[in-house]
């Protein structure tokens, strides 16, 4: 019955105004590089396959950075003090997007009719899809109008999207969201060497409002994803700290000091990194853990994508 609420005549990737009719070229046009690289086997016989495949690889090379294997320790209680209980997690190498997904990038997802394409959404979310609207009632992020983003903020991180919108975009583009451990690995750079190096921030161990957009920097809002280059991680990934919190694929699992589970009114998904309005610098670090209701469409939460290293067709 739910299918009747949504149009079924606009498959993602083709048939929309301005989008190439050819599915392979449409994927390139819509910046679904991960789909081309990891699921492109079906187009091997396409006359442009080699060129498009290489172009997608080049785009990924430009937009993603390698995070080497490592391990992280995550506190398990809400009181994050030295000596508090922790769990250790090992991470495999992976490719992490250097910037959060922007409004301009997300616009392609919206313009492709993705909000009407039930097939790309988890079935459990179908009843909620109708609520994923902007200020004018069009399908899209909460703060957009008329199905469009503010043109002046095309290069800002997209916000006003819940965890499911973030995950669905990532999957649509051929990527995924990072796990909490992967995100922390990228921000703390705790690689396996003889020296146990653990960075409190991607750039080092001291908070510096000149290197990240938090409340202390005085911006009062999001900034373009390519700024604050001085706060980059060693592999060039930008703004892991500040600007917007970032959705991860992980559920938030924490307890209080007496071992009682910490829960929300609905499922809490882990978010990391702090945002432009994060007041306490101790809450914008590589290891600070927090969460948000999975369906919350907050003004200060965005996301970035991950591609498993070495995962490709062709």
């Amino acid at each position: 019955m739910l299918r009747g609420f949504f149009r079924q005549d606009a498959p993602t990737g083709g048939g929309r105004a301005g989008v190439d009719e050819d599915p392979l070229r449409a994927c390139m046009q819509l910046e679904r590089f991960g789909v081309i690289v990891t699921r492109g086997e079906r187009w091997r016989a396409h006359p442009d396959y080699e060129n498009v495949f290489q172009a997608a690889l080049d785009a990924i090379d430009q937009r993603f950075s390698l995070v080497p294997e490592g391990f992280v320790s995550m506190p398990t209680t809400v009181t994050d003090e030295p000596g508090c209980p922790e769990t250790d997690h090992e991470t495999e190498p992976f490719l992490l997007a250097r910037t959060c997904v922007t409004n301009a990038q997300y616009q392609k997802f919206v313009d492709a009719g993705s909000y009407e394409d039930l097939e790309i959404w988890p079935e459990s979310i179908w009843p909620h899809l109708i609520g994923f609207q902007d200020q004018t009632g069009k399908a899209g992020p909460r703060f957009w109008r008329g199905g469009r983003h503010d043109e002046a903020k095309g290069d800002h991180p997209v916000v006003g999207i819940c965890a499911y919108e973030a995950a669905t975009y990532a999957n649509w583009a051929g990527f995924r969201l990072p796990t909490e451990a992967e995100w922390q690995m990228a921000a703390s750079w705790r690689i396996r060497t003889s020296a146990h190096v653990f960075r409190r921030y991607p750039w080092g161990d001291s908070h510096d409002p000149r290197r990240c957009n938090t409340w202390a920097s005085g911006r009062g809002g999001t900034v373009p994803v390519g700024t604050y280059t001085e706060g980059a991680a060693p592999n060039g990934v930008l703004q892991l700290i500040g600007n917007v919190w970032e959705w991860t694929a992980s559920d938030l699992e924490m307890t209080d000091d007496k071992g009682r589970p910490v829960v929300g009114d609905m499922l809490l998904k882990a978010i990391r990194g702090g945002a432009f309005d994060t007041y306490f610098s101790c809450q914008a670090t590589s290891h600070f853990r927090t969460g948000l209701a999975c369906l919350a469409r907050a003004h200060n939460v965005g996301f970035r994508c991950v591609l498993d290293a070495g995962r490709r067709d062709g």
Binding site: K258, V262, V263, G264, D277, Y279, F288, A298
Partner: peptide, 28 residues
């Protein structure tokens, strides 16, 4: 408060309770 959660369970007297926990700040 950017996100509110609750620590649920029994207190020292064995009574059910839910203690509100401000997970992080978000000043608006």
């Amino acid at each position: 408060v950017g996100s509110l959660a609750y620590a649920t369970g029994a207190d020292d007297d064995g009574l059910d309770f839910a203690r509100p926990i401000p997970l992080h700040t978000s000043l608006q």
